[in-house]
């Protein structure tokens, strides 16, 4: 792990809403190829951290680098799975069309998606087991299926680093397994995956790195070294016992 390249570096990042800091002086150095969970209580700024890294929210201080360069120069290296609840699923479009949106980044302005983009999208749908739903209107999909469509869209971005905002939230067993399989595949392919995660029990099983966050960074590092009672207690403010989890 020592000499690995850094996929994401965050320096002194501070984000505020209405002058109230929601992320305070965050430093992170995420090595290439890790599966990292970001954990913390509600309101800890987990989603905000991802959004600030992706330039969706402007920080009031600090900087972010993707493989050593600013995010704006490295967009094509980064895939994003937003929270499922962040969009209107009554929007008039199909599953395939949503997945195609993943290819828009490499197309750039004005250029339209064509056969090549459609092929990429179909392959991504197949990977998440949703190929037979390609023509289905997105409001007609179950919550788990919608989540898989979002995952397929990120796969269609064909990125080196993936950010996922609570992909396991409210999904059924099939989808959870589908997501885990995709995560494993991404790991095998040497991608870096950063996931906002709520279920502390599954952290040691699914991830090899973890960042504890509660407005400030509490700890970051390999799960086996830092996923312990002391950090959980510091993050969640109540007495946590890892022994309960595993």
């Amino acid at each position: 792990m020592e000499q690995k390249k850094l996929a994401v570096t965050v320096d002194d990042l501070t984000v505020a809403y209405n002058y109230k800091p929601v992320l305070w002086d965050i430093d992170l150095a995420i090595p290439e190829g890790v599966m990292m969970a970001i954990v913390g209580p509600n309101g800890a700024g987990k989603s905000t951290l991802i959004k600030a890294i992706l330039g969706i929210i402007d920080p009031i201080a600090g900087s972010v680098a993707i493989y050593g360069k600013p995010y704006k120069k490295q967009r094509k290296l980064v895939g994003y799975v937003p929270q499922k609840g962040s969009v209107d699923w009554d929007f008039p479009t199909t599953a395939l069309d949503v997945v195609m949106m993943g290819t828009y980044g490499s197309l750039g302005w004005v250029k339209r998606p064509g056969k090549k983009e459609k092929k990429i999208a179909l392959e991504a749908l197949e990977k998440v087991g949703m190929l037979s739903f390609k023509e289905r209107q997105i409001s007609q999909l179950s919550g788990g299926q919608q989540q898989r469509v979002f995952l397929a869209r990120a796969l269609a971005q064909d990125a080196a680093i993936y950010f996922m905002d609570e992909p396991f939230q409210g999904v059924d067993a099939t989808t959870e397994i589908a997501i885990i399989n995709i995560l494993k595949e991404l790991r095998k392919a040497g991608k870096t995956v950063i996931v906002v995660h709520h279920d502390l029990q599954t952290v040691p099983e699914y991830f090899d790195w973890v960042t504890f966050l509660n407005v400030k960074k509490i700890a970051t590092g390999p799960v086996k070294d830092i996923f312990n009672d002391s950090n959980l207690t510091k993050t969640y403010g109540i007495n946590y016992k890892v022994s309960v989890q595993q």
């Binding site: 969706i56 967009r75 937003p82 828009y104 004005v110």
Partner: peptide
């Protein structure tokens, strides 16, 4: 016609649209 794709993605998912540079 020129910006149909951009209008669609920014209407459906403004977050992703920003991340992709639209």
């Amino acid at each position: 016609i020129a910006f149909f794709k951009e209008l669609k993605i920014s209407t459906f998912d403004a977050g992703l649209a920003t991340a992709l540079g639209f």
